[in-house]
Write a protein that binds this DNA or RNA. Structure first.
Lengths: 143, 143
DNA sequence: CTTGAAGCTCTAGTGACTAGAGGAATTACA
DNA sequence: TGTAATTCCTCTAGTCACTAGAGCTTCAAG
């Protein structure tokens, strides 16, 4: 039997977060000691490690809930689990693409400031004047 | 003079978000019409466009507050603005690196599921069993 | 002059936790 | 066995950057 602190050390999930997951129904309420403290089995440790791993991979709590639900019906077809993983992959790729665009613009902004005062600081100017953007990201402000 | 809706259309910042920014002190409270509606000047439009642009680039509201503060003192040295931009660049690069690791693992997980049922679905197995990770991301669960 | 869009304030909700108060249980060591 | 340190408990509230909705008022077009 593991205390909540044991679980936390073994999975890297913080103690309050474990309690939060219990409240959200991601992990089920465990047995209690005589003094009302949580006592976990190995199975519960493994489930928490699963959750931790999936969160590390950027799955939303709702996705994880679905994956857990699926994994408790091992006889069903697994197309749904695949779909969740693939959607997550697509979203990760989108985030990477977006961040790379930001990186490019930030490099441009941060690298070429040779002004001495804020008045001619390129960082401030670049942020003020959308027209300075090399790479148009949205083309918003038509004033 | 622009109404809040005009501002919203021109900057792409949603109306409730503009009011939220006002509450947070990012934009100053504008003049009002006789009927108590907000009326903005061109200057305020430009400030909002600045904010929008910086948010698009992932700057936190607190960073933006600092940049605005800086830009209102154009005679000061601009080292601080540079620093904010550079820190943002570093954090963007870290996020990209992290997401690429996730991408790799997700590709591995999502691509090689040939099981027909959840019981032998690779997605579920990979998430359950940390040891299947090709690329160790944390090495957490020493059970 | 009416009607419908756009505006107003206010409260509460989102996701995924995190922090802190105030107290009880457990564990380690003398 | 005593006690002190650590861990645990519940509960409330805070974080960030919005977003949604209720219930009302004002504005602009026809």
């Amino acid at each position: 039997m593991f205390s909540i602190g044991d679980l936390s050390r073994r999975t890297g999930v913080k103690v309050p977060t474990i309690r939060y997951y219990e409240q959200m129904g991601l992990v089920s309420a465990p047995e209690r000691s005589e003094g009302n403290q949580r006592r976990y089995s190995r199975q519960e440790l493994e489930r928490l490690a699963f959750i931790r791993h999936a969160r590390d991979l950027g799955f939303a709590v709702e996705d994880i809930r679905a994956l857990i639900e699926l994994s408790s019906h091992p006889e069903q077809p697994c197309g749904h689990a695949d779909k969740i993983a693939e959607e997550q992959l697509i979203s990760v790729r989108e985030k990477i693409a977006q961040l790379k665009r930001l990186e490019t613009e930030l490099e441009r902004i941060a690298s070429c400031c040779d002004g001495k005062t804020v008045g001619d600081c390129y960082v401030i100017r670049a942020l003020s004047d959308h027209a300075l953007c090399a790479d148009e990201h949205g083309e918003i402000c038509g004033y």
